[in-house]
Amino acid sequence: MWWYVGKRLLQAIPVFLGATLILFILLKLRPGDPILNLAGNKPVSQEVRDALAAQYHLDDPLFVQWFQFVKSAITFDFGETFAGQPVFDLIKETFPVTVTLAVMALSIDAILGITLGTIAGLRRNGWFDSSMLVISLAMLAIPIFVLGFVMQLIFGVKLGWTSPTVGSDWTIGDLILPAIVLAIANFAYTIRLTRTSVAENLSADHVRTARAKGLSERMVVRRHVLRNSLVPVVTYIGINLGSLMAGAIITETIFNIPGVGNAAYTAIFKGETSTVVAIVTFMVMVYVLMSLLVDLVYAVLDPRIRYA
């Protein structure tokens, strides 16, 4: 088990370095004076210029700059916004609501997706299965921002069940609707994957053997079908985090949630590329870390991995 953990950790390092390299190169590709870019295109004095150049190692060779980029990324030093606020402070302010939103969406996705997928898989080709197929395909086809907008219009504006926008003094209740919107985007995949996995396991040899032992149908399904089907699903839900984060940018924008995604959107809107890159770098770090965690969960779920 520990060898596996160690190996996985070691593998994450080049991936993280590579990802930061890509982001770093993109940042460097920006046209114009890097100092002006950093300062938000305001005229600056020579002293400020020198100070900025020293702070960001602009005169050093590129790989040293990259090294500094990585170093500041892992020490959460993401520079400043044009307005002069450290980006990490901005992230600290906005992160809690995004995490809350993501956890809510992930729970909705996992609970509903696995439950519905399991029922569909157990009654394969029945009416429930067929209607789930239609619903999940439709959900895949509707872009999240259209969906978010329609939901906002119906539940927020027309029915008035929740406030259509969230604002800075958010509560968990405010986040329910955005979380549902965010969950639905991945939900369709979760249902389909669970269904396939359950259906496959139902016809597995070892399930027949379990029946032959005299286990009750409930026990067979719980211990041998569901348990085995969950392994790929849990992995998948972890990978989903990536699209969840991208989705957060859109959902937060629509519902005006003061999260990291919204901050990114504002930065894009204002053309603050360095802030955008900083926020995305942070998100990629979270993502790499989460994929690592998911792999470890995978090892807990499947003994064959532990000893690999």
Binding site: D205, H206, V207, T209, A212, K213, R223, R227, D302
Partner: peptide, 21 residues
């Protein structure tokens, strides 16, 4: 009946045990 009256030893030992238990 299964298990207590009629037992089964299946064909392929590789696929007949649940790999997760």
């Amino acid at each position: 009946l299964r298990g207590s009256s009629i037992g089964l030893v299946p064909q392929d030992p590789m696929s007949n045990l649940n790999p997760l238990w």
